[in-house]
Every structure is written in structure tokens, then in C-alpha cells.
């Protein structure tokens, strides 16, 4: 199995073409196996805890605008992934325009989110500090608004999305668009590196998206998904999963 694909450039020199899409199947299979194993473990071996009630007083967890952002971002990522892998797996759809439009949407909402998070939201609530790393190993420690896993997922997705966007925009600049014509490629090796990075970050994004979706549908986490749809969690859910000293919702 190859990791990186190579090709000859216009003058016959070997340059990087991109990541090997064999890795797509590796990622897919690995993610499936790990998540399946986790599901089995949780179902069979993990200590069963009573699920907090969704009834009772509701606490706001996400503003509507943030939920909109999340779902637009989620949609655009899924569209990007689907349109990106469609030609690889042999699906014959006209994918490129949808792909870059989704990429632009993702870019814009990420910029919006960044600005909003910096100036209008509690940015610190998403910061990962040394103390956060104790959380997985000590059941007595409850997180603030976001758990260690959520913060980890957020920052992993942040890095991957930024990488995908940065490399994607670079590649976008190399195709015709409504705003510019395709330029000459002076250095095919450099272009190949960008394709490689785009491919690697895409593979990472696929893996983490799969993990994210998996946990989003897990029973014990499903209330978070609901909160991302409806905006609230119950007071029971809050107390069971969060330290109200650290997070004081409205």
C-alpha cells in the first residue's frame, strides 16, 4: 500500500501528486472498527449509569446563531467530504463546483465563528488547560461548559478544518472560478505538496467527523446533540455532567 502518490512533472521529474486514496479505506475501516469496539465496550462492559432526566427546568446551552453556525458548518463539511470522495470511489456526479462552494461556505462560517467566539462568546470556556487533562482520569472532576473530550474534538476539528480550508483555498486558486482564471503552475512539486496536505487533512477530517457523529448519536451524549438542535439541556443533565461553579448558564 502506498502512502503518497507520485507522478512525473512536465519535465519528467518525479513530484508528489497527493495522498494515496488507499488511506481513505484504511481510515474508514479503522474508524469503523474502533467505534464499533467502543460501542461494544460501552454496551457490554462499561458501568451503566442512570441517564439524567431531560424533564424539568431547561438551561440554555447554545444560542440559536451558534447552532445555525454548527449545522451550516456540519453540512458544509459533510458536503465537502462527500463531493471530495465521490470521484475517488467512482460516483459520477458533477462535484467540483459543489465542493468549492461548500468550501467557501465553510470558510465564511468559520471566520464568522472565530470572530463571534473571540468577541461575543466565552472564548475561555473552550480553552484547553493543564487541568483539563486530569478530567478523563478523575470521575470527581466535572467540566465547565465543555468537557475535555468536547474541547479536544473542537480543537482537533479546528486544526483539521483550518488545514483543509487553507490548502483548499490554495488549490481553489489553481482552478477557474467566477473571479479569476486558472494561473500557470510554476512549481508542480509545490502544488503536489498542497494536494498532499489537503488529502491528509481531509482524511483526518473524515476520521474525526466519523468520531464526532458517533458520539453525537450515542445515548449518553445525545442530549448534547439535542442542545445543538434545540439549544437547551435540562437542569438534571447540567448537574450530572457539568460543574456549575465552572459554568453558570443563564
Amino acid at each position: 500500500m502506498e502512502i503518497i502518490r507520485y507522478r512525473r512533472d512536465v519535465w519528467g521529474e518525479e513530484v508528489i501528486l497527493g495522498v494515496s486514496w488507499d488511506l481513505l479505506w484504511v481510515i474508514a475501516v479503522t474508524a469503523f472498527v474502533l467505534l464499533a469496539a467502543h460501542a461494544i465496550f460501552m454496551a457490554a462492559l462499561a458501568k451503566k449509569k442512570a441517564m439524567p432526566s431531560a424533564q424539568g427546568k431547561r438551561v440554555k446551552r447554545h444560542e440559536g446563531i451558534d447552532r445555525a453556525f454548527h449545522w451550516i458548518m456540519a453540512g458544509s463539511v459533510l458536503v465537502l467530504i462527500f463531493t471530495g470522495i465521490a470521484p475517488i470511489i467512482g460516483l459520477r456526479i458533477s462535484w467540483l463546483n459543489i465542493h468549492w462552494i461548500a468550501g467557501l461556505i465553510l470558510s465564511f462560517v468559520c471566520i464568522f465563528h472565530t470572530i463571534r467566539a473571540l468577541f461575543w462568546q466565552d472564548f475561555k470556556s473552550m480553552l484547553l488547560g493543564p487541568a483539563d487533562f486530569k478530567e478523563p482520569f478523575d470521575e470527581t472532576i466535572k467540566p465547565g461548559k465543555y468537557s475535555f473530550e468536547q474541547k479536544g474534538m473542537h480543537w482537533a476539528m479546528t486544526v483539521l478544518v483550518i488545514a483543509v480550508i487553507a490548502t483548499g483555498i490554495t488549490l481553489f486558486l489553481h482552478i477557474d472560478s467566477p473571479w479569476w482564471d486558472r494561473p500557470s503552475v510554476d512549481n508542480e512539486a509545490t502544488l503536489g505538496v498542497f494536494f498532499l496536505l489537503h488529502g491528509i487533512s481531509t482524511l483526518g477530517l473524515i476520521a474525526f467527523t466519523a468520531i464526532h457523529i458517533y458520539f453525537a448519536v450515542r445515548p449518553e451524549k445525545r442530549f448534547y446533540t439535542r442542545s445543538m438542535v434545540q439549544g437547551w439541556i435540562s437542569e438534571d443533565e447540567l448537574k450530572a455532567n457539568h460543574d456549575t461553579d465552572k459554568w453558570k448558564p443563564e
Binding site: 500557470s184 508542480e188 502544488l191 503536489g192
Partner: peptide, 13 residues
């Protein structure tokens, strides 16, 4: 040919 660029559609193609 399975590559990642076009030589014809450029400013000088």
C-alpha cells in the same frame, strides 16, 4: 491523466 493540473488552461496555454 489522473494528475492535478491542466497545462492548456493557463494564461499562456
Amino acid at each position: 491523466a489522473g494528475g492535478n493540473l491542466c497545462y492548456a488552461d493557463t494564461p499562456e496555454g
